[in-house]
Simulated assay, not measured.
Amino acid sequence: MLVHICCAVDSHYFLEKIQEEFPDEKLVGYFYDPNIHPYSEYRLRYLDVEYSCKKLGIPLLEGSYNLEEWLKKVKGMEHLPEKGDRCTVCYDDRLDVSVQKALELGHDKFTTSLLISPKKSQEKLEKIGDKLTQETGVNFIFRDYRSGNGGQVQGERVKENSLYRQNYCGCLFGLSAQREIQKKIMDEMFNPISNQIMPESIEERLELYQRRNDLEDAGEKYKLIKQRFLNYRLLGGKVSIAKKIVPSYIMCYSTINRNNTNGRIEYTKDGINYLNRDEVKIIDIQTFNLFAGTSYKDVKELMYKPLDFYKELEIRNLIIKNPYDLSALIVLDEIIDDKYEIEINATTYEDIKEEII
Rank of each mutant, 00 (worst) to 15 (best):
R205N: 12
R205Y: 09
R205A: 08
R205G: 05
E207A: 13
E207G: 08
E207P: 05
E207R: 12
E207H: 11
E207V: 07
L208A: 06
L208C: 08
L208M: 11
Y209H: 14
Y209R: 12
Y209D: 13
Q210M: 07
Q210I: 03
Q210K: 12
R211P: 00
R211H: 10
R211E: 14
R211I: 05
R211F: 02
R212V: 15
R212M: 03
N213C: 03
N213R: 02
D214I: 05
L215I: 00
L215P: 11
L215N: 04
L215T: 05
D217L: 11
D217A: 15
D217G: 05
D217H: 07
D217T: 14
D217F: 04
D217P: 00
A218M: 08
A218T: 09
A218H: 07
A218I: 09
G219K: 11
G219E: 09
E220Q: 15
E220T: 11
E220M: 11
E220D: 13
E220I: 12
K221D: 15
K221R: 14
K221W: 02
K221E: 15
K221S: 12
K221V: 15
Y222D: 07
Y222H: 14
Y222G: 06
Y222S: 10
K223T: 11
L224R: 00
L224N: 02
L224H: 03
L224M: 07
L224Q: 02
I225T: 15
I225A: 11
I225G: 15
K226I: 07
K226C: 11
K226F: 06
Q227A: 08
Q227D: 08
R228F: 12
R228N: 13
R228S: 10
F229A: 04
F229E: 05
F229H: 10
F229K: 03
F229L: 03
L230G: 01
L230S: 03
L230E: 07
L230V: 02
L230Q: 09
N231Y: 02
N231F: 00
N231P: 00
N231E: 00
N231A: 00
N231I: 00
Y232N: 04
Y232S: 01
Y232C: 01
Y232I: 05
R233T: 08
R233A: 08
R233W: 10
L234F: 07
L234I: 03
L235C: 12
L235A: 09
L235D: 11
L235H: 14
L235P: 05
L235V: 06
G236V: 07
G236I: 08
G237W: 01
G237I: 03
G237V: 04
G237F: 00
G237T: 10
G237H: 04
G237Q: 08
G237Y: 01
G237C: 09
K238A: 09
K238R: 13
K238M: 10
V239I: 07
V239C: 02
V239Y: 01
V239G: 07
V239D: 04
V239N: 03
